[in-house]
Design a protein around this nucleic acid. Sequence first.
DNA 1: TCTGGGGTCCTAGGACCC
DNA 2: TCTGGGGTCCTAGGACCC
Length: 410
Amino acid sequence: MNRIILHIDFNSYFASVEQQANPFLRGKPIGITGKQVERSVITTASIEAKALGVKTAMSTWEAKKICPSLMLWPGDPKKYAAITERFNCILKEFSPNVSQFSVDESFLDITNEAEDYFGATCLAQALRKRLQEECGEHITASIGIAPNKLMAKLACESVKPNGLTVVRSEDLISFIDTRPLPALCGIGRRIEARLNALGIETFKQLREFPLEDLQTEFNSYGTWLHEAAHGRDSSAVVSSTQKGIRNMHSEDVKSYGHSYTLPQDTYDPLVLKRYLLGLADKVAWRMRRDGIVSRRVSAFVRFGDFSSHGEQRTFHAPTANGLKLFQIAWNIIQPHLGYTPVRLVGLSASQLTQGPEQPPLFKKDRKILSVFSSLDTLQHRYGSGVWQRASTLSAKFKTRSSGFHYDHEV
DNA sequence: TCTGGGGTCCTAGGACCC
DNA sequence: TCTGGGGTCCTAGGACCC
């Protein structure tokens, strides 16, 4: 049976959320950035900013040069995620099969709800109306409808902003042929260049290129490209209704990570330890919240010259203990310090399994664990940021302490 | 005077086991 | 004195997405 898949993508999401919340920002070119506005990139440009040439991933410095009237606004990822949670509740009113693809994109399998493409169009219009009522007129979405996820996303991409495109099975090929290669989710800069090198510049050429030669060049990815050029994609919309947004990660998420660009590049190991421990605690808290433990840590630094270094370590007793994650991460990073100042530190935990950590052997450690359990309860109730290790406070607060005893503190 | 922060998947090669 | 074949686990690195 033919499926009907709907892809929805919120236009200039972070910028629209800010404009909806703050009338002063409406109609103005704004760029949402990372925490350190001056050392960051544009994560989302408002529609007005896009019209003036500002693009996602541009450095803020470059964006300002192109568009001097651009207002830079540090983003608030937690706020956006909370709003996404509300959107997802609305989407579930329209189909039980909703799969969140990113913070501002979701897929819905509406085969049973819509019955045919006319029904699908009506459903899409009703969905959009419902979203407007709930979230306000400044937050708009584009919708693509097609027989599979890949094509629904391609359709959605073709009508930004605020459009609705329906591609029926019989129109798939002619539709694909109107799109450039990089419009497909899965063809990035490198893949495009390699395709071009084979003389492939359009989907028609990709379709006609011998499958075996594609496989020689791209291995299994060659098969995928071949299928995509024919408009085929059999992947299912895997619903996350059972899990809820909070816990949607507990089942299939593969890693938990955080990274942080420092306010200034630094050589100071104490400063780096402070941030790294903060990141480790954030990662550990999310794991405990979701009932997950990890047995692999990767840590990385980016230096002032933008070279970077990272390594992974696997261990055999899975943990969700921030201090343990930190210690492993520090052991990875520490040997590489000292020659070039550090710009960014990051840490990620993977090889995840369900379940509580093995209770520690020693009484002292069990005591620490119970303290964390209480802190987790607090954090659950009042949100993250409700507690912080003394050692992760900025330097001026710990001038009287005896330095940084990361293995003795709670 | 420069480039965020969150993820996923794939491949290749070495170690190790049976 | 030579050295199979299958499988898993681990690390490094590269590509992609938003």
